[in-house]
Design a protein around this nucleic acid. Structure first.
Lengths: 255, 255
DNA sequence: GATAAAAAGCGCAAAAACGAACATTTTCGC
DNA sequence: GCGAAAATGTTCGTTTTTGCGCTTTTTATC
């Protein structure tokens, strides 16, 4: 089990996209499939990756089926959105990252940002960002929700109001035609509201599947966020509203 | 092993790209492959890089090396202590698990306990116990300390005083001949005190290496805990004191 | 379940990279 | 300039890695 020179880059790609494919890596490095397989086997033996048919994924201590599936859903789009979002996040700021698979993707894309103060109520995000040495991590307390690694409860919103963030990145369960951000969980709405109130600037990350869905609890309006980062163009009427609200629309097409 | 003029630049490139190649460096500096190989061999011997075929990469565990070593220290003894401790922990109770490698081992031994309400200020423990579905996990908030996954800060002690635990399992940095529990970090003492105050019952887990060590900050006396779980018999005078205090001594010999 | 397709594993030969010994050049103090 | 010491270049035998053809295993589809 000797280290290969490709190991760091494979791991970086894995952390950025959440997964790697044998085909993709072979093309990327210009080597045969067999060589990549050997690399992935070694990396898996060292516990750095988890081997699956066709490639490898990040080792998930949680192994929550529903969550893993949800994370894999639109993984390419989420990674692209996360890249675009990270590119708009400066260094040396305080930043809140909310619960959600999209915000987790943003955390992965922030691994090379420097001097961030990140506050999060998402255990997975804390686990991802420990790899970034120059980043201070503050975890809000709460009850751990296994479904998504979120820390929930009344205490989270309280804790958040003790801070003032330069920037917040939030997700949502759905986004309706009126430009309202919606969530499945009423408890989380309180947290999201607290975040919007305490941030100088706010980005919403949401892939296109959020547009085709609905949810019962209203977080607020797109007019309250500074930018929406997504992967497909918005319907005409919603795009016009955003223009009126001066809400930037960033479209980052999935690979 | 003499310093070469290229060393700082090689390291800079390595840190920027995550890797360096023999070919690339030879072209960059206009020297032969053999010269670069000598440079990389020296750098690897100095521990600054890790040598691989074709080049070199950054050493893998640059940050958490201290923690991993500490965790591996007396691993057998810690596992045995953890087993003995878990055997004395009933199901259906509320439980606090403090920062520390010994308490992490206890968490691993609790993976098959049912209906526990676990409160912890240790991110690693939260990650371990997600695998136990029947266990509710509450995480105290705080700043993440990379050295050991601990969540620290003034908020932790505050948060703890909002609870009342059936049982607390705590560790300590050292245990002196007078039966005093000691810690390296004065901040943690506040947290440990809060835990002792809020628990109906307390177990201290400490392997024998703690007896041979000292630390500056005093948490409290063994007389305040209900049981000490360790891996070797205590010195005669300390054992007598514990008997007077009605502090149970549990010896779980390492494998 | 049965079957086809994709992916993974295995052994071996070729290629690349490695390290050691020795020749050559550069650097520095005098 | 001169000579010693250090650094670099050259050559060659050895080790490691890679790629190829093959069989075995896993996955997907009917």
């Amino acid at each position: 089990m000797t280290q290969t020179i490709r190991a760091p880059e494979i791991l970086e790609i894995a952390r950025r996209d959440g997964k790697v494919t044998v085909d993709g890596l072979a093309a990327h490095f210009g080597v045969t499939l067999q060589t990549i397989r050997r690399d992935l086997t070694d990396l898996a033996e060292a516990g750095r990756l988890e081997r699956v048919h066709g490639g490898a994924i990040l080792p998930s201590g949680t192994s929550n089926i529903g969550y893993e599936e949800r994370r894999a859903l639109n993984a390419d789009a989420k990674a692209a959105i996360a890249q675009a979002c990270a590119a708009r996040i400066p260094e040396d700021i305080s930043l809140f990252l909310n619960i959600g698979t999209s915000t987790e993707a943003v955390a992965r894309a922030l691994l090379h940002h420097r001097n961030l103060l990140v506050v999060t109520n998402n255990l997975n995000i804390a686990n991802i960002l420990v790899a970034n040495d120059s980043c201070e991590i503050i975890v809000t307390g709460g009850t751990l929700r296994r479904a998504d690694g979120g820390l929930i409860g009344t205490l989270a919103a309280e804790r958040i109001r003790q801070f003032k963030f330069d920037l917040a990145v939030v997700g949502c369960s759905a986004l309706d035609a009126d430009g309202d951000m919606l969530d499945y969980d009423i408890q989380e709405v309180g947290v999201s509201r607290a975040i919007l109130d305490q941030s100088r600037q706010t980005f919403l990350v949401a892939d296109h599947s959020k547009l085709a869905r609905s949810a019962p609890a209203r977080i607020g309006s797109l007019s309250e966020v500074d930018a929406l980062i997504t992967d497909t163009a918005l319907p005409e009427n919603l795009a016009r509203k955003c223009a009126d609200w001066q809400t930037d629309i960033v479209v980052a097409p999935g690979a």
